[in-house]
């Protein structure tokens, strides 16, 4: 089928747009590389993993505690928010009366729109003192996980619900015709059919958690260390950049760009993993 003239123009335009978007990602990567080059040039890569601490002003650049903190906060938030998000979507799609479901969905949408700094402020002034009673100092890995889970819950709930809605009606009719109960229909038919949409929802939640800065900065405590318990204070890569960038000069500044680079590589690895999972599950 040959394209009409209008279509041809459209295709050229769309290709240009796609090229632009792709080149922005590439430019960000190049920018991070050139900004961190001054330090990568004169100290070896391995020092970012083997130095005994992160004290950039004194010349120590170990970023591994922040890598582990970023991974742990994101994983923890996902473990809490994923089952809740899926349960919330199932409730609103299959169990709630339509009146309740409409208002429930609006509430979740509102929750998704609250700026992260509000969550952070609430975490710092309300949640942290409560957790300090349980185990000092209050601002900790655990507090950060709770706040992040609350933040990504609406994202996951809304995307999963959209995935549930897109499951073809014929599947439901078939299940009903077979006399399946609602719960076994969900487990055996709906969830597997909506699998790739659910994975996308979790991915979206994870990328929001990994990139979150202000809320985590306020509730995680920001001490650069590998945590020994969930009540220890940690610093994520994003919090590190936000805390120190405004005051950093020379090598310190370049080292912060290295932590940005590390974050970007981490996100890339994470997305590739999710794509691999999707690819496997669609051809399995």
């Amino acid at each position: 089928m040959s394209l009409s003239r209008t279509d041809q123009h459209l295709v050229v335009g769309l290709r240009l747009c796609a090229l632009l978007v792709a080149s922005i990602v590439l430019l960000v990567f190049l920018f991070l590389l050139t900004e961190s080059w001054p330090i990568l040039n004169h100290i070896s890569w391995s020092r970012f993993f083997t130095d005994h601490s992160w004290h950039p002003v004194q010349g120590f650049y170990n970023i591994t505690p922040m890598l582990s903190a970023t991974l742990l906060t994101t994983l923890g938030a996902l473990i809490l928010a994923t089952p809740l998000g899926i349960a919330s979507a199932l409730f609103s799609r299959y169990y709630a009366p339509s009146f309740v479901a409409t208002w429930y969905r609006r509430l979740i949408e509102l929750l998704a729109g609250i700026p992260s700094v509000v969550y952070g402020f609430w975490g710092l002034t309300t949640l942290a003192p409560l957790i300090a009673n349980l185990h000092p100092p209050g601002v900790s890995l655990f507090t950060a996980i709770l706040v992040l889970a609350l933040m990504i819950l609406p994202t996951i709930a809304l995307t999963v619900e959209a995935a549930l809605i897109s499951v073809p009606n014929a599947y439901h009719s078939g299940a009903v015709a077979l006399g399946m109960s609602r719960w076994s229909m969900i487990i055996a038919i709906v969830l597997p059919a909506a699998q790739s949409g659910i994975v996308s929802g979790i991915m979206l939640g994870a990328s929001r958690a990994i990139g979150e800065t202000m809320a985590v900065l306020m509730v995680a405590g920001n001490v650069v260390q590998h945590p020994h318990s969930v009540f220890d204070s940690v610093r994520t890569l994003t919090a590190n950049i936000a805390l120190e960038m405004a005051y950093a000069m020379g090598d310190h500044r370049a080292a912060l760009f290295v932590s940005g680079l590390a974050l970007m590589i981490m996100v890339l690895g994470f997305i590739s993993l999710a794509e691999l999972f999707k690819w496997k599950s669609s051809y399995a």
Partner: peptide, 13 residues
Amino acid sequence: LQNTELKPHVIIG
């Protein structure tokens, strides 16, 4: 003091 000798529990902006 040197910043490397400090043992903080919380770091703030």
